[in-house]
Computed example of a mutant assay.
Amino acid sequence: MSNTTSGAQGSYTQSILLMCVGVACLSANDAIAKTLTSGYSPLQILFLRNVIALPITIVIALVMGGPSALRSYRPVTHLMRGALWVVATMMFFTSFIYLGLAEATALIFVAPFFIILISSLFLGEEVGWRRWLAVLAGFLGVLVIIHPGAATFQLIALLPVATALVYALLMLSARWVDPRESVWTLLVYLTGAGALLSALIVPFVWVPVRLGDLWLFAAIALFGTAGMTMMTQAFRLAPSVVVAPLDYTALLWATLFGWLIWRESPGAMTFLGAAIIIASGVFNILRDQRQAGS
């Protein structure tokens, strides 16, 4: 085996490990957020998470990208992205109050399909019929999970879907970030913009933080930042076709955390819908990789 092949495999193994641990960290972040929603507004949770995480992200950016990682050439773009992130996170955290963790997690997986939809309808990108079928299958999975028309249907179940739409806009907005800026710059400014924008509104919903909850706010900042950092690094070390499907392991973690903490037991329709969404998403990832290699 050549040194090049051995090095590539080692890089892939490292990226897979980073992605799996990163997804687990973000799932823990979501579980802690759901716990905190019983006593605090989603906006206050988001604000404190960003304030605590900001110095951590600055240190990470300096270590990984050097002083240049703190420079932005288009700060207004980052402010716009921060606004999208605040809206998306608030909606997702709010859904935790009413939905199970696994159900909310499964529904947010439709974000890649919104990206395809927006790219085709508004950005003029060409989307083949196979991709359209995958998009339709993904939204079919959503219908299976929320089963509209059934007696158990809750309108609040659309919140994670709306979150996925705003998250898709956030991902697409990265195209307007100056190409001279690194992913570490995006991480710092997204966290900073989120802290700044949420600070403008949080006084209206603020409640005193209980001393016993301080460690939970610290944990959500640490897990969230660690998860985003590891997942970012995983995509830098290996092709997306290797690491992107591992994002769906979040459903396993969400199911586990939901059962351990709240004794949530997702129904068969949730798992069926999630399986459809995941299968469609993996198809799109493989399709992207095949087209990129052709």
Rank of each mutant, 00 (worst) to 15 (best):
residue 6 S to N: 14
residue 211 L to V: 03
residue 114 F to W: 13
residue 137 A to C: 09
residue 23 V to G: 09
residue 107 L to T: 11
residue 111 A to Q: 08
residue 51 V to H: 08
residue 148 P to M: 06
residue 11 S to G: 07
residue 83 A to S: 00
residue 137 A to I: 01
residue 91 M to C: 13
residue 271 F to P: 03
residue 42 P to F: 05
residue 61 A to Y: 06
residue 253 W to I: 04
residue 149 G to L: 03
residue 219 A to E: 13
residue 50 N to L: 07
residue 51 V to Y: 03
residue 174 A to Q: 09
residue 54 L to D: 06
residue 163 T to Q: 10
residue 92 F to S: 07
residue 98 Y to Q: 08
residue 155 L to D: 07
residue 229 T to L: 09
residue 18 L to N: 03
residue 130 R to N: 12
residue 234 A to E: 08
residue 4 T to E: 09
residue 70 L to H: 05
residue 67 P to Y: 13
residue 131 R to M: 05
residue 169 L to V: 02
residue 259 W to T: 00
residue 246 L to Y: 11
residue 104 A to H: 12
residue 224 G to K: 02
residue 82 G to N: 00
residue 26 L to M: 15
residue 209 V to Y: 02
residue 32 I to T: 09
residue 111 A to F: 13
residue 290 R to S: 12
residue 186 L to D: 02
residue 21 V to L: 15
residue 204 F to L: 11
residue 227 G to C: 12
residue 24 A to P: 08
residue 177 V to L: 04
residue 251 L to E: 05
residue 243 V to S: 01
residue 138 G to A: 12
residue 238 A to D: 03
residue 291 Q to I: 15
residue 167 Y to P: 04
residue 128 G to Y: 13
residue 200 L to H: 03
residue 219 A to F: 13
residue 207 V to L: 04
residue 255 T to L: 14
residue 84 L to W: 00
residue 258 G to L: 10
residue 264 E to Y: 10
residue 214 L to D: 04
residue 284 N to T: 14
residue 239 P to C: 06
residue 25 C to E: 12
residue 98 Y to A: 09
residue 49 R to Y: 02
residue 167 Y to G: 01
residue 53 A to L: 11
residue 268 A to C: 00
residue 136 L to N: 06
residue 293 G to E: 13
residue 131 R to P: 08
residue 96 F to T: 02
residue 44 Q to N: 04
residue 247 D to I: 12
residue 160 P to Q: 09
residue 131 R to K: 13
residue 195 A to C: 13
residue 131 R to I: 01
residue 144 V to I: 15
residue 234 A to D: 03
residue 74 R to H: 01
residue 107 L to Q: 08
residue 180 R to W: 11
residue 124 G to D: 09
residue 14 Q to M: 14
residue 265 S to P: 03
residue 9 Q to A: 14
residue 257 F to T: 06
residue 196 L to H: 00
residue 212 G to L: 09
residue 284 N to I: 14
residue 112 P to K: 14
residue 187 L to R: 10
residue 237 L to C: 02
residue 210 R to C: 02
residue 62 L to Y: 12
residue 152 T to Q: 15
residue 181 E to P: 10
residue 111 A to T: 08
residue 126 E to W: 13
residue 210 R to T: 01
